[in-house]
Design a protein around this nucleic acid. Structure first.
Lengths: 202, 202
DNA sequence: GTCTATAACGGGATAGAC
DNA sequence: GTCTATCCCGTTATAGAC
């Protein structure tokens, strides 16, 4: 039995193997700094790994980022689904989605990628972002349509438009919160939207 | 009289002097690619200028970017003010603001900066962004309050919250449009918001 | 699998000639 | 004012040892 080295205290050392630590570190850094501004070296430091490990497990920064981003989008979908597919009225579920606990100042790990020039120029990176936000809008639309069918919302409501609006309030709330470095901007945007939704509800 | 060289056909050559061309090129590049992803060389090529010119007129990339960004935010304020301070009902003015012609896929030249890590880390760059979006929300709030006073909107409306919501719909609309590379996502978000506003209006 | 050494390249700025 | 040469550094990847 080899002597077990004490694991250097770091952020990404919870019993993961090297490959997992690399992915986890990349996921965090993509969220914090985006793709273009994250260097392989940043990842290696955060993951307590060496260059050799990274280029052994992945072809390079891009492949690593794609895998991390796909995982990230999966997380976001699961969290959104938790609110939107819960029991309750349509209005309840939309409100629950809008009010989900969010670290507003961090911004959206998916939406932020749309302003990263390298992501826009790399189809394999843009694809999961596009797919996820498209999925989100479709889920919102489905819930809103259920609300219309149930008589919660007037039949004149355009479910698809409203779904885009709700998704946009969240994405824009993050932008406003980050601009002013004030999380309450996000909350205000969301509460204003909820007020509007309640205003048109039966 | 020296022989006039034919101006090489470029984007930024409309009779501007070198300093103006540098600023104009920077403004465009900040919009398209953000701050971190824009290199001095990119700017020099776009402005048809040499390095010497840039470091003569400006201390470096940062100072140049600050001045370009301040100009950019001034433009945005003027455009928004054009809609929000026009004659008409409060609802009209908010609708006009929301429907202003926008090149949705380009995104917001101000809002996008909030996801640029270098901008967040540089107070002189973040300041004009924060100021401008704060100003925008305040303007929207003022208009909405006028609408409440005029009886257009119910007195139960929270003007400040609703102002954040309207600003967020625009910022988020850009994100959704860019994600799907589809300008109609922006329009849908905006039209959904207008539907909600009309729904609560008297 | 992981390490270190190295390399090719570009970013950002400075120096000094013109 | 503008030009070119030069410099230092970080990014991204490869090579080959262990």
């Amino acid at each position: 039995m080899t002597t077990q080295q004490p694991v250097p205290s770091g952020t990404y050392n919870h019993g993961m193997d090297t490959r997992e630590r690399l992915l986890d570190a990349t996921e965090q850094l993509l969220w914090e700094r985006g793709y273009a501004a994250t260097s392989p070296k940043d990842i290696l430091v955060a993951a307590h790994a060496g260059q050799g490990s990274m280029y052994h497990h992945f072809s390079g920064k891009q492949e690593l980022a794609v895998e991390a981003l796909v995982h990230s989008t999966g997380q976001l979908r699961a969290e959104a689904a938790g609110a939107l597919q819960a029991p309750g009225t349509a209005l309840d579920r939309v409100e629950q989605y809008l009010r989900r606990q969010r670290d507003s100042l961090r911004g959206c790990r998916v939406g932020r990628m749309t302003y990263d020039p390298d992501v826009l120029a790399t189809p394999t990176l843009l694809q999961p972002v596009a797919d996820t936000l498209e999925w989100l809008v479709a889920e919102l639309e489905r819930v809103i349509e259920e609300g219309i069918a149930a008589g919660e919302f007037p039949g004149t409501v355009d479910a698809r438009q409203l779904a885009f609006t709700v998704a946009a309030v969240v994405q824009g709330g993050y932008v406003l919160a980050r601009a002013g470095q004030d999380a309450s901007a996000f909350d205000a945007a969301v509460e204003g939207a909820i007020g509007l939704l309640r205003g048109i509800a039966a």
